[in-house]
Design a protein around this nucleic acid. Structure first.
Lengths: 228, 228
DNA sequence: CCGTTATTCAAGCGTACGGTTGAATATTCA
DNA sequence: TGAATATTCAACCGTACGCTTGAATAACGG
């Protein structure tokens, strides 16, 4: 009886640990994060996560086995997506927990932002209203592909590596708030630095796309091309 | 530059995955679950999780390295506890996600409850009021030790293996709602069966102690004995 | 029908992990 | 001080995991 109970408990916790195992590998967390922005094919995910395609496929299958993501065949591609909004919440919770408890996270981000005048972040909540009033320009420095998958309302898309060349597209008289994916991404900081050098008033947004979605905010999405 | 960004991202996700790794081992999520009920010493945890003491110690140190639990030396014992309420939330989320997505969980629990007339659960929310009005008797069938760590308000403690002998302590004219830790535990079901055989009107409660705590409900606690 | 492309399968390799065992380290009590 | 007890440390073993490489499997286009 008691031993039967043990077996039951063991098999149960083994199942729970399956989703634990799914987020035990850094690259898998990153993939989930990526998918939190929108559905993508294997090759795209592999590129964004900087891993080989077979490796990405392997990871995605692990995630699929844990029912965290779903695969949908779309012509020649396989479109992966989060199985549920709850999964997105879970990942955000995981990140939040890590950020709150692991001093290392703070250290790592600080090490990157170090000396450059600090993050100078602005909260997304504050922004919503000011954007609507046209007081600020919101700049999305993600690659166009990620912008397409979801972006801040009314945000202008200029990928970081094109920013220098396309600076004239931004109005100089308004404050610019740059963002990229995730709360810890350096890209936004680099953009802010560049803009400041060029005489703009620029700041960095605190949260990225997946966080908005997790918070239930609406995320503007360009319709996905029918061809590709 | 882009490679620097990669390194940054990698080290960041590596930190996130630390939390993931912490809940990648079944026994560790069981330990977290146990700790969700209240602080305990290593030996007690080892016993409850059915693992050796050194093994438990090892797991606990992994959890401590991930900042999910905290250790506090109390005389000869080391009292482990969850580092934060958020950790409890996280574990509940994890379990919920697993239960929602993994058909296996449903299967396993069903295999145990099979044929015996079903779970017949009653939600904790519904119960709160009825207990206050004295309409039902709430029965805690956990071991006394676990009862001491935290239990439902006004619950009567009769460990499952003493239940048969102490049946007369329960009033026959009121409905009895039995519970034990976690939403999937068989003990409550067994208690309900026994009670029904003896002529009681009995049901099983849906959620266990850690869930209440995670929901922010108050949990009655008997003061911890100074001696043991 | 054949080449191309996206994805998956399969095998192999090095490392890390979970668990065991036995000894070492604290802390309390006499 | 010395015995008793709770916990941790350290070494070890078998397995599983993450990643790579190379081939196999689908789906589309000419």
């Amino acid at each position: 009886m008691t031993t039967a109970h043990r077996r039951f408990k063991d098999s149960l916790y083994e199942q729970f640990a399956r989703v634990g195992k799914a987020v035990a590998a850094p690259k898998r967390v990153e993939l989930l994060d990526l998918l939190g922005q929108g559905s993508r094919a294997v090759e795209a995910l592999a590129g964004l996560a900087a891993i080989s395609v077979p490796n990405a496929s392997q990871h995605l299958q692990v995630l699929r086995a844990a029912r965290l993501v779903e695969a949908r065949k779309r012509g020649l591609y396989v479109e992966y997506s989060l199985a549920d909004d709850e999964v997105g919440h879970f990942v955000v919770t995981l990140r939040g927990l890590a950020a709150a408890r692991l001093a290392e996270v703070e250290q790592i981000t600080r090490a990157h932002f170090d000396g450059r005048g600090g993050p100078d972040a602005v909260a997304g909540d504050e922004l919503i209203g000011r954007v609507r009033r046209g007081e600020v320009t919101v700049l999305d420095v993600q690659p166009a592909e990620e912008y397409r998958a979801g972006h801040f309302p009314r945000a202008v898309s200029i990928p970081i590596d094109e920013l220098k060349a396309r600076l004239k597209e931004l109005p100089k008289d308004r404050e610019v708030v740059a963002y990229r994916r995730g709360p810890y991404c350096v890209m936004a900081v680099e953009a802010v630095e560049l803009l400041r050098q060029k005489g703009f008033t620029a700041r960095r947004m605190e949260l990225g796309v997946p966080n908005w979605r997790a918070r239930g905010w609406r995320v503007a999405t360009v319709r996905r091309g029918a061809g590709a």
